[in-house]
């Protein structure tokens, strides 16, 4: 398994480089103009000058090479400088956003806490609710609990966040006045009071997101448990006199985890990617909001960098899932 992991990690480098090239070409090919949001009152000649100042006129390979150098060479230096107080990176141009004319990575780092707080919490909450629901629904298939669980999960998944978000805002902010409708990203949690405030402003976005995540994972958990509950080894385990608890929660659960691990691993990168619509609705200015804003403004360096970080996470977490398969089911071997 170790050799497999190392081989895959080594292979990840060319994979990621290829992905970055595809993303780059895709973004270049996509119609769009960083000047789209500049008012029509600015004459076309001026817009042309502004484009030139962004370096748009350069040939493609130059632009791509510049990004590669900035991302893989300059940005790590900046990070090292930041940690150790050295000065490797002076005078080297970093990846600069076209919207803000400032280093992309600085903004990303500014945004990560919001996203982790809200999307991360929602993900953890969602998994913690989904697993027990999925297990119990399968164990008592077609019971009332299962039926209600199915209904709620399906409705929860069918209702898109652009609607459910507004619905909870109207109920809890406008009518009841319990929670703020706009997330305060400047809040510093340094006291009990501010911690409570942070909790209050997180409740609604976490609720909306967790509903979606719970719906999805509990369905996969239930289906997979159902497949396993009727297997012969379950009968054997019961026949051996294992307690029902051990049979279900150890033997069946472990064998049912493969699809669930896949789904969870697919979801983890999206924690970083943020939840675009939910972040928009609640004004949690996290990574998702940054990405959609950058796409709308055609801020290619920003989109390229964010998507690439996202790609790295995808590759890493899919690798982790593959390793976990081997742990869950030792018969799976890759070599």
């Amino acid at each position: 398994m170790l050799t497999f992991t190392i081989r895959r990690l080594v292979l990840a480098v060319p994979t990621l480089l290829f992905i970055s090239l595809v993303i780059f070409l895709l973004l270049q090919l996509a119609p769009g103009d960083p000047m789209a949001q500049v008012p029509l009152t600015v004459p076309p000649e001026v817009k042309e000058k502004m484009r030139e100042a962004l370096g748009l006129g350069q040939p493609l390979y130059v632009q791509y090479w510049k990004w590669i150098v900035q991302f893989f060479w300059v940005e790590p230096q900046v990070l090292i400088d930041h940690w150790f107080g050295t000065s490797f990176s002076t005078d080297n141009l970093r990846v600069i956003s076209w919207q803000t004319r400032s280093p992309v990575m600085d903004i990303v780092i500014q945004r990560i806490p919001q996203t982790l707080w809200v999307v991360g919490t929602a993900y953890v909450v969602g998994i913690l609710i989904a697993l027990p629901i999925g297990i119990y629904s399968a164990y008592r298939q077609y019971s009332w609990f299962d039926q209600i669980g199915t209904f709620v999960a399906m409705v929860g998944f069918s209702v898109p966040p652009f609607f459910s978000g507004v619905l909870v805002i109207v109920i809890f902010s406008v009518e009841l006045g319990w929670f703020p409708s706009i997330y305060d990203t400047t809040l510093v949690v340094d006291s009990w009071e501010s911690f409570l405030q942070q909790l209050r402003q997180m409740v609604m976005p976490v609720m909306v997101l967790a509903l979606q995540i719970t719906a999805q994972i509990s369905r996969f958990m239930r289906a997979s448990m159902l497949d396993n509950l009727n297997q012969d080894y379950v009968r054997t385990a019961r026949a051996k006199g294992l307690t029902e608890r051990t049979v279900v929660l150890v033997h069946v659960l472990r064998n049912s985890m493969i699809p669930v691990v896949t789904v969870i691993a697919l979801g983890v990168p999206s924690i970083f990617g943020g939840a675009i619509i939910t972040e928009q609705v609640f004004k949690v200015n996290g990574i998702g909001q940054l990405l959609i804003g950058a796409i709308q403004a055609n801020d290619l360096p920003m989109v390229q960098t964010l998507t690439f970080i996202f790609a790295v996470l995808i590759v890493v977490f899919n690798l982790i899932a593959d390793v976990l398969y081997g742990v869950l089911d030792p018969r799976i071997r890759y070599d």
């Binding site: 100042a53 141009l93 600069i96 956003s97 919207q99 803000t100 004319r101 400032s102 280093p103 600085d106 903004i107 500014q110 945004r111 990203t185 400047t186 200015n285 909001q289 940054l290 804003g293």
Partner: peptide, 28 residues
């Protein structure tokens, strides 16, 4: 060199009634 002056672009010294304390691009 205009785009390199992040500090100046984010926190211009001005004559107006207010001055910037904290600027988070595309946020607050």
């Amino acid at each position: 060199k205009a785009p390199e002056c992040t500090e100046a672009n984010f926190n211009p010294v001005g004559t107006g009634p207010f001055m910037v304390k904290d600027f988070r691009p595309n946020d607050v």
